[in-house]
Write a protein that binds this DNA or RNA. Structure first.
Lengths: 131, 131
DNA sequence: TATAAAGATACCAGACTAGTATCATTATGT
DNA sequence: ACATAATGATACTAGTCTGGTATCTTTATA
């Protein structure tokens, strides 16, 4: 029942380092020094961020990664969605079927309300506020 | 990233039915009729609730389960903790070690604040409010 | 043209999830 | 007494998720 998993956590750390370079390309080799993240795993994470358009990469010698947007435009929810899928705490287990138990549906409504709050709070966390 | 899993969901449904019997013993055989939960699975869930002291059981013919407390005293968080372990959305991944990245620690503080809210909201949901 | 970088993909071990299967124990009704 | 209907205890399993590894390809630079 964690809100963020290890991938997202690592992504935040890596992005903070990249952000502090202010637009210069940062290679994985550089990143692994500060962050204690296994190199191949970090690469996979950066590749995802690149595919999602959060980072921009350049191949070849002296290549690396830089942010694709300003710090304020990168939301924690973007990262969570990239690594953990859609932000739903509360997907009904019995999707299409009509819920057979009113008790459980009341429960679901209350959980939904909590979820909305959580999502709005998470959306308010930008990379800028973390660096 | 679900707040409640299937076990907890099933437990809520079962408890609602048992609650409506107002102290009379309810057998698994009775329960499986209304709820569409596989019988052996439901039994396992009820056994857990019994061990945790939320239900009280009686063995033998005409045995079954009944609530051990009044509806107001059974909290959703009791069920979540029984089936999903301690309510922590935010356990630091690097437990004992000093967190090497300030960004991630700021993140953790903000997640903690969200967590406190969620837990307090979940604590406010009692079985009485669901029946 | 060697080298240092990212891209793409496939793999793997362990934990978790949801559920099944079996046998033992106990209370009831006849 | 005893068949029966109930829970107690426990072990197993198939599938999915998590965290991480391994390997090969492509590309830019000095």
């Amino acid at each position: 029942m964690k809100l963020i998993n290890r991938d997202t956590d690592y992504a935040v750390r890596a992005l903070c380092v990249i952000a502090r370079e202010g637009g210069r390309l940062v290679s994985v080799t550089r990143l692994v020094k500060g962050l204690k993240i296994p190199r191949p795993f970090l690469r996979k994470i950066l590749q995802v961020l690149n595919k999602k358009g959060i980072l921009k990469s350049r191949k070849g010698k002296r290549g690396g990664f830089r942010l694709n947007f300003s710090l304020e435009k990168i939301l924690l929810t973007d990262l969570i969605e990239a690594f953990q899928g859609p932000l739903r705490l509360n997907e009904c287990i019995f999707k299409k079927k009509i819920c057979p138990d009113r008790g459980a549906c009341v429960l679901r409504m209350r959980i939904s309300a909590i979820e909305e709050y959580v999502v709005s709070e998470l959306k308010a966390i930008t990379l800028a506020s973390l660096v």
